[in-house]
Amino acid sequence: MPSTVEIVDSFKDTIIQIATQAGTGTGFYLRQYDLIVTNNHVVDNNAEVTIAGKQFEKALSRVWYTDRKHDLAFLQAPAQVQLPEIKLGEYIRMKDGDPVIAIGHPYGLNYTATQGVISKVDRVREGLKYIQIDAAINPGNSGGPLVNMSGEVIGVNTFIIRGGDNLGFALPEQYLRTALDIYAPYKGKPSTRCHACEFLVLPENIDNGKYCPSCGSEVKLPELPKEEYEPVGVSKTIENILKALGKDIKLAREGVNIWSVKEGSAKIVIRYNPENYFIASDAYLCLLPSDGMKIKPLYQYLLQENYHNKGLVLSCQNQNIVLSRIIYDLDLSQENGELLFRQLFQKADAYDDILKKEHGCLDRVEE
């Protein structure tokens, strides 16, 4: 039987980060079906989402299957990427007290794996069985795998009870396996499973474009919108600026009023908070040098550069060196925004090179 460390390590390359305009979540890749599994509430009625993993850069992924009743969704796997194989276990073999590992990797957070035990193997909620666990689950980890001590997926981490002391719930593997087998013959077609009768609705059998042909319940296929999503106000200005600077907006979106882009080896995260009226842009450069003798001259260099830079500030956040700019939203226009962001992007890429070449700073490790 593999160790906990070996189990967690075997999953790192199969855990997928998922982002929409509304938020972030987790998924995992199953090679047997060549699909990414996540929760339906993670994709949030989107037919296309952003995905990223340790073996590939951010990319757009098509949502092929949604299932409101079981809170499942299946996504297109990244093209031309060979990801490791993980296997589905057998939920029926699990029992109360069995040790499990909840794994996730939401955007903006470190890869997380928490160990616990099954509190109740068949907790019934709204007519479905769930695995109740005491392993801590972050809300952003929704859609990640629940793993047994043989390294097999026995559930999909689905929800927590807020205010509860590590009360997490995972959808058992048997529901997931059934959904995968139902969809497998139609892979590559948008589909949804009726929440009332569990009939698989496809473009060729949907009644009048919005009703289940089996029971008549209203359903919604994950179809690409005829019109692209358009933000409003300051968010729209920010996206127009990023477009003008050659950035792919769909890939840049990481949630509500959050964007992330790369410039050279630097990662720039832009956050807009309408409540305090400020746009914060943080360019994550490199890491502090491991040689302690280089720290003091590095700090001196950062302070000297801050004295000369107008509106840009170099700082240290934990081990990261960060170049930041704060903009008051009423001061932002298309023209000055292009100037300010272009300057930030160019300076970030240049500083990253200087700090590594001249001050012994280390490459930043991507999450």
Rank of each mutant, 00 (worst) to 15 (best):
G337L: 11
T26C: 11
I268H: 01
E204I: 02
Y351W: 12
Y65C: 11
T66P: 02
G209T: 01
T66C: 03
L224F: 09
I327S: 11
N306C: 06
R31E: 14
P222Q: 11
P139M: 04
F341K: 06
E57R: 10
T20Q: 10
I86P: 10
E305F: 00
L344H: 11
K220Q: 15
K347T: 11
L88H: 01
N276L: 02
V124N: 12
Q317C: 01
R177Q: 13
A59I: 03
E239T: 07
C316G: 04
Q319S: 12
Q76P: 02
D71R: 08
G337E: 11
V234K: 04
A280R: 06
N318C: 01
V121G: 00
H41P: 09
P185K: 09
G151Y: 03
Q304A: 15
N138I: 12
S150Q: 11
G168T: 07
T24N: 13
A77D: 07
S235A: 15
E275Y: 07
F199T: 13
R123N: 13
V43E: 05
T24L: 02
N46L: 03
L75K: 03
S265A: 06
I36K: 07
Q319G: 00
T178F: 12
L221E: 09
L35F: 03
E228L: 09
L251I: 01
D9A: 13
N205F: 02
A52W: 11
V100R: 08
Q76L: 12
N110T: 04
N208H: 05
P145G: 04
A113T: 04
F345P: 08
G292C: 00
L330H: 10
A280I: 10
Q21L: 02
V63W: 09
D329I: 05
H70L: 04
A47N: 01
I241T: 06
K347D: 13
L146M: 14
I154F: 05
Q304H: 05
G143C: 11
I36P: 08
V256D: 13
D207H: 14
G155C: 05
L200R: 00
G255T: 03
F199A: 15
N40F: 05
K347N: 07
A59S: 12
E223I: 14
D96R: 12
A136C: 03
K236N: 10
L35R: 15
L60G: 06
Y272M: 08
P99M: 10
S290Q: 15
Y299T: 01
S191W: 02
Y175M: 09
G164K: 08
V269A: 04
L330V: 10
N318D: 14
L180T: 07
R253L: 07
R193I: 13
V365R: 10
D96Q: 14
I241F: 13
K54F: 01
D122E: 12
I182P: 00
Q174N: 15
V49R: 11
L242Y: 06
V256N: 11
Q346V: 09
V124F: 02
L224P: 00
G155F: 07
Q346K: 13
R68T: 14
G360C: 11
N208P: 00
D248H: 06
V232L: 10
A184F: 12
K58Y: 04
G27K: 01
G27P: 10
C197A: 10
G151T: 02
N45W: 00
L303N: 15
V147Q: 08
E152V: 02
Y272F: 14
G311C: 09
P213D: 09
I118G: 04
I18M: 07
T20G: 02
H41C: 06
A184S: 13
A135E: 01
T50W: 08
K236Q: 14
V124Q: 14
Y277F: 08
